[in-house]
Computed example of a mutant assay.
Amino acid sequence: MIGYPEAPKAWWLTRGMARISGVNLPRAVVEGWLQRAELEDLITRCAMCRAGQDCEAWLMRSGAERAMPEFCPNKSGIEALIA
């Protein structure tokens, strides 16, 4: 199981944003198209972001959204993983 007990909220938010784009981060690591270090970079970038509350609120009301919000610092990195 891939997870980040040292940064659970950042992991949850990053994984949620990836899901919006149709990206399954744990599967990406297991299948080898995302390195564990790259995933750690995404989590760290999220943990350092000051928009955590905005992100959480956006995810809770995202509904059928299929595009990440512009304010997400991981937008380009996650969208690069879209098959």
Rank of each mutant, 00 (worst) to 15 (best):
I2E: 10
G3N: 13
G3S: 15
P5H: 10
P8Y: 08
P8E: 05
A10H: 06
W11N: 12
W11V: 09
W12R: 14
L13Q: 12
L13C: 00
T14A: 13
T14F: 05
R15G: 07
G16F: 06
G16R: 07
M17Y: 08
A18H: 02
R19T: 02
I20G: 00
G22H: 03
V23R: 03
V23T: 00
N24W: 09
L25T: 05
L25V: 07
L25F: 02
L25D: 05
P26S: 04
P26F: 08
A28P: 14
A28N: 06
V29E: 00
V30A: 10
V30M: 00
V30S: 04
V30G: 00
E31D: 13
E31S: 05
G32T: 04
Q35A: 15
Q35C: 06
R36I: 13
A37L: 01
E40Q: 14
D41H: 03
L42A: 07
T44A: 13
T44W: 08
R45T: 14
C46K: 04
M48C: 08
M48P: 00
R50S: 13
A51M: 12
G52F: 06
G52A: 12
Q53V: 13
Q53N: 15
Q53G: 11
C55F: 08
E56T: 09
E56N: 14
W58E: 00
L59V: 04
L59K: 11
M60R: 15
M60S: 14
S62G: 03
A64Y: 01
E65C: 09
R66A: 08
R66N: 03
M68T: 05
E70I: 05
F71K: 06
C72M: 03
N74E: 09
G77D: 14
G77W: 07
G77K: 01
I78T: 02
I78P: 08
E79D: 11
E79C: 04
A80I: 11
L81N: 01
L81Q: 05
L81W: 04
I82P: 03
I82R: 15
I82W: 07
A83E: 10
